[in-house]
């Protein structure tokens, strides 16, 4: 019985941060010493290689591995700075039809023999691409943002995951803006967990650095910098590995800033 954890990262809605989360979690897990592979199941519109800065190193895909025209080691792309992390694209963007749930199970079975963590980056939507990606997963992370549409789609996806017997399913709330939450312009954390009724694995605050790092192909968690999103992602990776890290509280973060201001005022330097 393998102890590998095969985790599907999905959301239903597009653009909520599946790929960003996969890349950052992959780096964080690898940095903690776990051998990790990220499998890009969204190979029609594949982006995970861009985010990891590995686009120019891809030669083969899982498709060639299954066709036995190359070995698995040849298809796995090792990350430049983080040798514990490998990337495997599931297929060629121009050959969308080939992957079936059975193929997916075969690829994942190969990966489970040699890695501690297999993260599967799922395509948006709930059609065949999703079904293929979910076919081999044992656990799932559902990414959503505090928006009505994203929550609705996440709810649908959770229902589908439940019928497939994938468990546990945990929640990551991405792109949280504490200011908008406290002024009630955005769904609150409670509003979201109230509907989805899932354990919340982490909150990621909206962070401009994500855009910069995405364009550069260097995930935020690669450096020890203190950007809020980077901290959030490494916390999520820690919690995935069973560490007990308290959740960030958006209200406290704001109060913290105000408290700092008050402290400044009280120092009477003026």
């Amino acid at each position: 019985m393998s102890t590998t954890r095969t985790i599907l990262i999905c959301s239903g809605k597009g653009g909520v941060g599946k790929t960003t989360t996969t890349a950052n979690l992959g780096i964080s897990l690898a940095r903690s010493g776990a051998s990790t592979v990220v499998l890009d199941a969204d190979f029609g519109l594949r982006n995970l290689d861009l985010l990891l800065g590995l686009e120019n190193r891809i030669v083969y895909t899982a498709q060639e591995v299954l066709a036995e025209t190359c070995r698995l080691e040849q298809a796995l792309v090792k990350h430049k700075q983080e040798p514990n992390l490998s990337l495997l694209p599931a297929g060629n963007p121009r050959m969308l039809e080939w992957l079936t749930p059975k193929d997916m199970q075969a690829i994942v079975a190969l990966l489970e023999e040699r890695f501690d963590y297999v993260l599967i980056d799922c395509p948006a939507g709930i059609e065949d691409g999703f079904k293929n990606a979910a076919a081999a997963a044992r656990e799932a992370l559902v990414i959503t943002t505090p928006e009505v549409a994203a929550v609705r789609d996440a709810d649908r996806v959770i229902g589908l995951l439940n019928t497939q017997g994938i468990s546990p399913v945990q929640l990551v709330l991405n792109r949280v803006r504490p200011k908008m939450m406290s002024s009630q312009e955005m769904l609150s954390v409670d509003d979201v967990t109230d509907i989805l009724a899932l354990p919340l694995l982490g909150l990621v605050f909206e962070d401009e650095q994500v855009i910069v790092s995405t364009n550069r192909g260097e995930p935020l968690t690669l450096s020890d910098g203190g950007s809020p999103a980077a901290r959030a992602y490494s916390n999520i990776a820690g919690r995935l590995q069973g560490e007990d890290i308290p959740l960030m509280d958006p209200a406290k973060l704001r109060r913290g800033l105000r408290a700092k201001m008050r402290e400044l005022m009280q120092t009477k330097i003026f």
């Binding site: 609705r152 709810d155 649908r156 959770i158 229902g159 009724a197």
Partner: peptide, 12 residues
């Protein structure tokens, strides 16, 4: 009487 345990999610 049909008794259903569990939450019905979007799309169900």
């Amino acid at each position: 009487l049909l008794v259903h345990r569990g939450t019905l999610r979007s799309g169900d």
